[in-house]
Amino acid sequence: MEEKESLEYSNTEKNRTTKKHTWILYLVLLISIFISTLSGVCAKFAASQPIFSFKFFLYYGLEILILGIYAIIWQQVIKRLNLAIAYSFKASALIWTLVWGLIIFNETINATKIIGVAIVIVGIIIVNIKKK
């Protein structure tokens, strides 16, 4: 739904890659990166299945499907944002790496991982500082 709204937004916006961004665009960007991290989860599930088994193809197929959805959204996002800015948001995947590690793969979380994620978030915010 958000994607549709930003599509309409682009039709009315003449200059597609500059200044006026709506929060919806950033929300779509963050959601698309969140979705892309799920493909990694599927990859890990696929890797734990016997190769060429039904579940292997299920998870692998799901991984490809998620990457496809992500690719479709990504193209719409970079149409409206500078690449260097949009790309920096990819680092937010690290947050989800931490979350999936904790809730799905029972990995341990230590202080350096949390600090790492916090530093990355600060970095993304600094990239997005707007000069008036």
Partner: peptide
């Protein structure tokens, strides 16, 4: 920002 991201 990107340098800080890499450090993170």
């Amino acid at each position: 920002g990107n340098v800080i991201i890499i450090i993170g």
